[in-house]
């Protein structure tokens, strides 16, 4: 099998917040949205080797060789100066992995894992790799009990999902907003296709969770919440909904002027959903 390589920003070998149980999480580099409230904005762009970050790297972990930015992790002191200076919200600190590399890593951590989750960035932009990886996990006798989950913004088209779903156990799907102008303001794009994708996933029995980020004055107004309620009701009252609360850690730029979402505000939305019969709602364990 001549598999493509994945460009990853980060691998977590222990996560409690990316699907059921303890999960190994692959954060893919690159996203097809550009959300202003993104909590890891350096995963959005793909490095175009402009070299702006090289002089910013004090320990010399970044060098320009044959017009390519080369990253030496051994020298990196994780100061993140390169991420701050990058003009396109990319990261020079990515690494390429083969399916076999990832399988070897999963095997080391297997006794502790419920499964693996691909996140990002937007993992489905590297769907060929995701499919190869999930297929390899499902066909390896020592790994086949692990579940394979995707954390996605739903921008992949239906044909793309139909290709992935046979080897996927569950999808955590972001719904960004309902009003078109708000979608564009928050993400730079029309994201309404994600609502249709939710129905496709539901029909396939693969919709694990709808995720909705509460941003004060934006996604928590009455019109938005009414549409959220109607949308969830259309999927079914048992649908698992995860409410996230906008906070400042990780975000950049103008989003730092945006108020954070307090626990009281989240609790009020939980109550609203409960009144509408939507009861399978998870809220943040910590606000900070």
């Amino acid at each position: 099998m001549n598999s493509p390589l994945a460009t990853l920003n980060k691998i977590l070998t222990c996560s409690f917040v990316d699907g059921p149980g303890n999960r190994l999480v692959l954060f893919f580099q690159g996203c097809n949205l550009a959300c202003s409230a993104c909590h890891n904005p350096y995963t959005i762009g793909i490095c175009d080797h402009c070299g702006d970050c090289v002089p910013a790297c004090d320990p010399g972990a970044l060098t320009l060789q044959s017009n390519k930015v080369i990253f030496n992790p051994a020298l990196c002191d994780q100061c993140d100066a390169c991420l701050t200076i990058c003009p396109i919200s990319a990261s020079p600190m990515t690494t390429q992995f083969s399916v076999d590399d990832i399988l070897a890593l999963i095997r080391i951590h297997k006794p502790f894992l419920g499964g693996i989750t691909v996140s990002g960035g937007e993992a489905t932009m590297q769907a060929d790799f995701v499919k190869d990886l999930f297929t390899a996990i499902k066909s390896a006798p020592d790994l086949s009990d692990l579940t394979c989950f995707i954390d996605s913004n739903g921008m992949l088209d239906i044909a793309g999902w139909q290709n992935l779903l046979p080897v996927t156990d569950g999808v955590m799907l972001d719904i960004k907003a309902f009003a078109m102008d708000l979608q564009k303001e928050l993400t730079g794009h029309d994201t309404s296709a994600a609502q249709n994708i939710a129905r496709v996933l539901l029909k396939a029995g693969k919709l694990y969770e709808i995720r909705y980020l509460l941003i004060p004055g934006k996604t928590d107004n009455t019109a938005e919440l009414d549409q959220l309620v109607a949308f969830i009701q259309s999927l079914g009252l048992d649908t698992k909904v995860r409410l996230n609360a906008f906070q400042h850690h990780g975000v950049r730029g103008l989003a730092l002027d945006q108020d954070i979402m307090p626990k009281e505000g989240v609790d009020a939305v939980v109550e609203l959903l409960a009144d509408a019969g939507i009861h399978n709602v998870t809220t943040p364990a910590i606000y900070q």
């Binding site: 409690f16 917040v17 059921p20 149980g21 303890n22 999960r23 006794p111 502790f112 894992l113 419920g114 998870t282 364990a285 910590i286």
Partner: peptide, 23 residues
């Protein structure tokens, strides 16, 4: 020491426990 996010995901603690004992 396990951070509080595990409270939303009890299955993770169960898996950590099984993994630790199996190790």
């Amino acid at each position: 020491t396990i951070d509080e996010t595990v409270k939303n995901n009890p299955e993770a603690l169960y898996q950590l426990c099984k993994g630790a004992l199996a190790s």
